[in-house]
Every structure is written in C-alpha cells, then in structure tokens.
Simulated scan of single mutants.
Amino acid sequence: MTETTTTTPPARRWRRHVAGTPGIVIGGGVLVLMILAAYLLPLPFSPTKPDPTATLQAPGGAHWLGTDLNGFDVFSRMIAAGRRDLPLALGGAVISLVVGAVIGLLISRKGKFGERAMRVLDAFQSFPLIVLSVTIVSFSGNAIQNVIYAIVIINVPRFIRLVRSEALALRESRYIEAAHAIGAGPTRVMFRHMLPNVLDVCLVQVSLAAANAVIVIAALNFLGVGVSPPTPTWGSMIQAGAGGIALGNWWLVAAPGVAVFVAVAALNLLADGIQRRFSDE
C-alpha cells in the first residue's frame, strides 16, 4: 500500500494563517494603504510652498481638505506628512526591537550581571521617558536622527524586559538543556535557539511600539521639537491649526488628527491580530 503525502500550497497556507485573522487583514491592509498613499498618491499642491492668496479656505473645490492660515493645502501636507511620520515610526520600532532583543538576551544569562542591569533599567525608567526624549531632542536639535533616538529611548526598555523574561522561561526548557549538552556555547544558544522562540511576542510588541512611536512623533512635533518646518508632519499640523478651532476652522486639526488616529488604530489591530494568530497555533 502506497502512502501519499500532500503539501499545502503556499497561497492556501497564507490564507489560513494570515487572511483568517481579521486584525492582520484590516490593520495590515490599512497600514499598507497609508504607506502606498503617502508615496504614490500625486499631490495636487506643493506641501512646502504656500499660496498666500488661498488662506483658510474651507474644504471643497480645488482644496479637498481646505487650506491653513499660511495658504498650505491641508490634503497635500497630510499625505506628505505620512512620508515622514510612518517611516520614522516603523524604523524607530524596528531599531528598538533589534537593540532591545540583543540586550535582553545578553542580560538573561545566569549571574549577578543580569539582575544589576535590570536595577539600572528600573532607575532609568523611573524618569518620565517622554519628558526625557523631549529634553534630548530639544538640546540636540530638530533632526530626524534625534527623533529616532527619542523613539528608541522610550521603546527599548520594553523590549529588554520582554525578551529577558521570555529567555529566562526558555532557559530551563529541555531543548535548551540539550543544546548545552551537545556543546553549544552561550552565544549560539541565545541567538540560534532562544531568539527564534521569542520572535512571536516581539512581533506583537514591535507593532505596539510603532503605534506608540506615531504618538511620540506627533507629540514632539506638536511641542515644536521634532522635524524642522516647513517639512510637514501630523503633529506640527495639529499644533499650527489648534488655534483655529475656536474660530470654526475645524479642518486644520481634523485631517492630521484622523491620520494619527487611523495609523495608531491600524498598528494596534495588527498587533492584536498577530497575537491571536500565534495564540491559536
């Protein structure tokens, strides 16, 4: 009797593991659409060159989302801001993952070094990190790399704690003991055997870190310590239009505010979908 084996086609596996999770489909789909719109959607007006003859026009006509006090087209600036804010948020979250995962694995080794490192981390986290990031960016200048530093400062401690706690739980497992028994060194055990087994929780956290980074970037730019003008960012648009709310110019804040909300919601949905996907396996 001949035994036949069947292999599930990759497309079917993708539908089962990804398309069957609403959070991944909706959150990931919205995020992809926002990135594609930021880079591929043609801008009807320049996001950095205002038109003084078209100030504070309500949404409609040539200016779909209206114009601001300086004559900037709100729609063009909102889309162009996505080219800056989204890559900064995603890039900062990925850098935080890499740095935090490496440090978390290194201090998960047996001995007093890990405990002492965690006490230092506790002392560091006792400071309001958002205030610390604002201070660093304020003194170091309004440059893109400084905004990334702020994102990393806020998110790295979370990855360190997460990866270290997962690594400590894995350290007592049988396959880790077997790896030590066959002569695998500590570095190989950490990065060859432990790291792949903590990536699932890291993927969830990196989506949450990116959502947090969107808020941090908006906050920094709202406070005027982020990316220098006239480069459009969602936070600076909200800050510039905040004074117009009392005058009825609601569209100045509504458009960038909705963009921040949708980006954060999409990333949180993506994180929830990834968590559900791994918990079902």
Rank of each mutant, 00 (worst) to 15 (best):
N142C: 00
A184Y: 04
A117K: 10
V102N: 04
K49W: 15
I107R: 05
D85P: 05
T53D: 15
E115V: 12
V94A: 11
Q205L: 11
L199H: 04
A240W: 01
I24C: 06
I79T: 11
N197H: 14
A19Q: 08
F124A: 12
R12Q: 09
I215S: 00
F113A: 12
A37K: 07
A93M: 03
R174K: 13
K49N: 15
L86F: 05
P186M: 02
L267Y: 08
P59R: 10
G244K: 01
K112H: 13
G141F: 09
D122W: 14
V201W: 03
A89W: 11
M1P: 09
I153W: 06
H193R: 00
A80M: 07
R158V: 08
F191K: 04
G66N: 02
P22V: 02
A240I: 01
G235Y: 10
T6Q: 13
L43V: 07
I103H: 11
V260H: 10
A271Q: 08
A255K: 01
N249G: 04
S207F: 06
F191E: 07
V152D: 01
V99G: 05
V214Q: 01
P10T: 01
L270F: 13
W234F: 04
P128E: 09
A263V: 04
N221W: 15
P186N: 10
N221Y: 14
G273S: 07
A265K: 05
S133K: 08
N142P: 13
I130S: 00
T5Y: 15
P9F: 07
A246E: 11
G61V: 00
P47V: 06
H180D: 03
